[in-house]
Design a protein around this nucleic acid. Structure first.
Lengths: 277, 277
DNA sequence: GTTCCGCATGAATCGATAG
DNA sequence: ACTATCGATTCATGCGGAA
């Protein structure tokens, strides 16, 4: 069921079944990047170019599915471009819910110095849904509890053993004894990952951990993950390793070949990706 | 030249001189917070309420000045509200440049657990300017190189400076001098600070380090810093400690009194704030 | 004078129940 | 059907008192 498809994602998606995808994770070509493809999108035209694609994505996504969009507006003439903001507003008109915005805090961003700007070390991970209720498997992404717990839970006072209601009347209360033996906690909406682009020549836009985290969070085994701009194949390969079914679409033959080769070279893969060019 | 003014910031600002301010740093009441004041702004009305204020701010700011806006949209009916995005677009129509967006990554965010959402541990710090060329003193916020300092702008904090001096005087100066000899690097656009949940009295919306960092970056001694929603006075007091002139406006008498008291109690202050109520 | 340890607090949000 | 109120859930920090 894994597919790598060579072609324009808009045309490919038009042939796909409605409400068949559990998770869409993608990092589209940033404005003015990859100029030769998709007509070399200028920031001013980005919204107009992207909306037909999100329209298809909305059709393909299951009602309980999630769309995660990794994007960051570029600096143009000393200003942050606003196309990402405009896109969010336009996508809501299409029927998308803008559920959340995660931050990818890049541990090692590129060095550099500008007279009026620091290094950009974060990117947006916009979460969109079709419904307020969607599939989310929070326990899959729990993280180790902070060091504070070790000291805090050594000796418990009397109030720690019972529920102690907060003073501000918010209804908030705590029972510290509940924390005994707890080793993992839920994460927040900030991801702190390195930008490691593994070992390949062609650098992936993001590290494996990024799609892995969202695939863990929003899908279970056997679900279908789509990346309409799969590039060197990171999303699809990671999804496949995690026993999800992956569909990756790529317009550039050189990236397509690279993705195909990477996926076939990997011993861990459950099944070989199909060549659907 | 330091002033704490009791009143509605819109009315107060209308009486102030054009192009007189070097830095505006503020954290306006978030939608649906502080319901009793400013008419209890509903998210739907937030943009309309805020635009007349930014219009005044634009008039008051020097051509080389900077406006830093600390804000985060709240969740409404399962979705992130879009009023912040709309505000950025509207402010550009007023003539503002949206130069940069910094992230405040909160180490200790508000607790809680929901079926479809994690804890929100970041806020926006939107940078606006009138011109592409503005005053920026990057060397003032350089951080020591090394793993221990990577995420910690904490080194800049007041208490750390005092503690360092104390150690210096008591014979532990060797380590410090090693640090001073170390190379320093420029930070990125992500700030990793804790929220101060001071157990003492009223707590501020943000820790001292937040305004301190931006005041260091965008002003020099003697410059004028404005906070039209000064609350318990954090911005003004920090600015004054750093030998900048501060103007703080607050509409709520109880906060105003608190700010006045805090500023007068502080021995480090260069001059006493004037009561302009 | 210094370190250690206990503890209250925080720009929150969802779902159920009541008016 | 729509709005208002209420109860439930949770992690990490800085302060202050104790050792």
């Amino acid at each position: 069921m894994n597919q790598l498809i060579l072609g324009d994602c808009l045309e490919v998606m038009r042939k796909m079944d409605s409400e068949s995808i559990d998770l869409i994770f993608t990092s589209p070509p940033y404005a003015d990047q990859r100029k030769s493809t998709y007509g070399g999108i200028h920031p001013d035209n980005y919204v107009k170019w992207f909306l037909p694609i999100t329209e298809q994505l909305l059709r393909l996504l299951k009602p309980t599915g999630t769309f995660v969009l990794n994007i960051k507006e570029k600096v143009l003439d000393g200003e942050r471009s606003t196309y990402v903001l405009e896109m969010i507003l336009e996508m809501r008109k299409q029927g998308w819910l803008w559920t959340e915005e995660f931050i990818w805090h890049k541990k090692n961003s590129y060095p550099g110095k500008w007279p009026n700007r620091f290094r950009d070390s974060w990117e947006r991970l916009l979460q969109f849904n079709k419904n307020k209720h969607f599939s989310m498997y929070q326990d899959n992404v729990k993280v180790p509890v902070g060091d504070w717990a070790k000291d805090r839970l050594k000796n418990l006072s009397e109030t720690d053993m019972i529920r102690d209601n907060a003073r501000n009347g918010s209804g908030f209360g705590k029972n510290i004894s509940n924390w005994i033996g707890r080793e993992t906690v839920y994460p927040s909406n900030v991801l702190h990952l390195a930008t490691e682009c593994s070992n390949k020549n062609h650098s992936a836009a993001f590290p494996d951990e990024l799609p892995k985290w969202f695939i863990s969070l929003f899908t279970k085994e056997g679900d279908i993950v789509l990346d309409p701009f799969v590039g060197s194949g990171t999303t699809a390969i990671v999804a496949n390793k995690m026993h999800r079914n992956a569909i990756g679409i790529e317009i550039l033959p050189e990236y397509y070949e690279l993705a195909l080769k990477s996926s076939q070279n990997n011993e861990l893969l459950q099944s070989i990706f199909q060549d659907v060019s």
